[in-house]
Write a protein that binds this DNA or RNA. Structure first.
Lengths: 233, 233
DNA sequence: TTCAAGTTATTTATCGATATTTTTTGTAAT
DNA sequence: ATTACAAAAAATATCGATAAATAACTTGAA
């Protein structure tokens, strides 16, 4: 039978709140909206083409996620960034991703193994290509890490991990506006092998080392940036 | 100089959104709003005496916290409860509280020790009194656990732990409408001693054992309730 | 009786408007 | 100059109303 006239799916996501949420989240993670920047609802209205209500709902959710801070009656701000915060996120991400990975190794099946192999292959392709697209790499890297913990059935662990991964990603994006080449491939390979061999200890160490190394570089760039900032003042 | 007429602080918290958020959160945790219950904004408006906007903002935040689920264009629901979810929360709470406790033991100072002793004493008083007020106990229990991890400086660890603690509390409150007496005192004492002696291993084991035991009882009651539910159908 | 289609009714999601609150600007006095 | 105060401007938080979507109900036919 024929439906009325409206298409069932207007724009990928359903509600305007969701759209605003995803776009704001993405813009914060990718540095389009800078840390400590004031989020004026009136201004965002025009920019995003939605009303104040959906925006405020999206901002409320982002507040709970830690991407936005909301002060009393003084509106919303993009969450600040600091070395301490990065260190904090890093430490906790290691704890959670290690846990998720171990659970995954315990209960992962054949399909899980296949996904890891496939995701690693795609990531390898991007890492070894000459013209490395950073956006492409981000996607493949995320897919690989997701594949590793795909066997983890804990809803809450996934929820928290997902937040921390994106928080970490924000630091990477903001700090590495100048891309820094590094030999990640070796770490990814060790991670893949340890997982496929079901060696929890080795995989745990590998993921810890991998995250720590990534964070170190980000932290160094962050420190340099904040030094330059102080010099200007 | 004289201000206009309005008192500067209407009701403890500042915005109506915050008030609605806290009240909804509390009502969900304490079972006033039951799992899977539909949260009709129009109805809540009258009940809480606030407009739709602050309510929707509060519900959005609670969605991010996992106390409420929001489906597409079908409104808000109180988050469901299940044995699997309880097991999930329990496992992750152990991981996080253990971590927070160990960090706390490492960096806790004299004031931290004092707080633990004081909180334990107050908790002891409630536990040993003849007419045990469950609400009083909840507060003292929370204070004690907070005191134990007060030395933990990780903002993110605290944030996630706080959510899990309250999620756990919801299960306790819903399942233990009939209060079940149990010997918690011994476990609390072991926890206190291990912390004061700065024994991370012992404290970690104690907190794990303590949370597991609590969850077991809650789970048993939950199972009985769900069985009774099925019998009626 | 059961199923299906159309209609009514409820409720959600959104927008525009209003009243406070905060921030900024301007002015005068020390 | 600098501080203090007052007035204006901007922006926030909130409410009431409207349009769109879902759910409930009724009716009619197999």
């Amino acid at each position: 039978m024929a439906k009325t006239t409206t298409p069932p799916d207007q724009n990928g996501t359903k509600t305007l709140s969701d759209q605003a949420y995803q776009r704001l989240r993405s813009d914060i993670i990718h540095g389009v909206l800078q840390p400590d920047e004031k989020l004026r609802v009136e201004h965002l209205r025009q920019e995003y083409g939605v009303g104040a209500s959906p925006l405020r709902e999206a901002l409320s959710r982002l507040t709970a996620d830690g991407f936005v801070t909301a002060e009393g009656q003084r509106g919303f701000l993009v969450a600040p960034m600091s070395e301490e915060d990065l260190a904090d996120i890093t430490r906790l991400r290691i704890l959670l991703e290690k846990q998720a990975l171990c659970q995954s190794i315990e209960s992962g099946d054949d399909a899980w193994e296949s996904q890891i192999v496939a995701a690693f292959y795609q990531l390898e392709k991007v890492e070894e290509s000459t013209d490395r697209d950073p956006v492409e790499w981000e996607v493949r890297n995320h897919d690989f890490h997701e594949a590793l913990i795909a066997g983890c059935t804990s809803k809450w662990l996934r929820r928290f991990y997902s937040i921390l991964y994106d928080q970490h990603k924000r630091y990477r994006n903001i700090a590495l506006s100048t891309e820094i080449p590094r030999d990640l491939h070796q770490e990814h390979e060790e991670l893949r092998n340890a997982a496929l061999e079901r060696d929890q200890k080795r995989a745990g160490d590998a993921i810890e080392h991998h995250i720590l190394r990534t964070a170190e570089i980000t932290q160094r760039v962050l420190r340099e940036e904040s030094l330059q900032k102080k010099e200007r003042a």
